[in-house]
């Protein structure tokens, strides 16, 4: 478990499904059934066409690194400088996150590098979606790290 000093999200009725999803280690997105727009963060209507007819689905968990900063100032929940990152999900939406299983340096953090989701338990009720560099696929296993 992470140190208890992260500021924790407080789910609302409109976002509860997302946080229930991360607890079950699924990254849930929403998609409009009228115009097919996929969006994030959650809300019970489509921000593109205003339809209330939307559905929840599980994202692939694959993303690329869109941008980041490496914060040098001490934060109680992090050891040393840490990256605050923006990742572009394969399904389209962008989200803020942290990059794990990776040195927090400009050399290690290359824009557009492929990433995959991890879930980190930060409190009894909350797992945060974090991202790690995609593992190199072992020989014969095409399902890991595959790209379209």
């Amino acid at each position: 478990m992470d140190k208890p000093t992260r500021n924790l999200p407080q789910p609302t009725p409109e976002t509860q499904h997302f946080w229930d999803g991360t607890q079950a280690e699924q990254l849930l997105l929403q998609r409009c059934t009228k115009c097919t727009h996929t969006y994030f963060p959650p809300r019970p209507f489509c921000p593109s066409c205003s339809s209330r007819s939307v559905e929840v689905y599980a994202a692939s968990g694959r993303a690329t690194l869109a941008s980041y900063v490496i914060n040098q100032r001490p934060h109680p929940a992090f050891d040393g400088p840490y990256a605050i990152a923006l990742v572009d999900l394969e399904e389209g939406p962008r989200m803020m996150t942290n990059i794990v299983e990776c040195e927090q340096t400009p050399e290690a953090l290359q824009l557009d590098m492929p990433l995959e989701v991890r879930f980190e338990q930060v409190s009894e009720d909350i797992k945060l979606p974090l991202f790690a560099p995609t593992r190199v696929a072992p020989a014969g296993d095409a399902s890991v790290g595959e790209t379209k």
């Binding site: 924790l8 999200p9 976002t15 963060p41 934060h75 605050i84 990152a85 803020m96 942290n98 945060l128």
Partner: peptide, 13 residues
């Protein structure tokens, strides 16, 4: 913490 920024940005430091 219940705002969208509070849920989807603040936890990441």
């Amino acid at each position: 913490p219940a705002s969208l920024a509070g849920q989807f940005e603040v936890p990441f430091g």
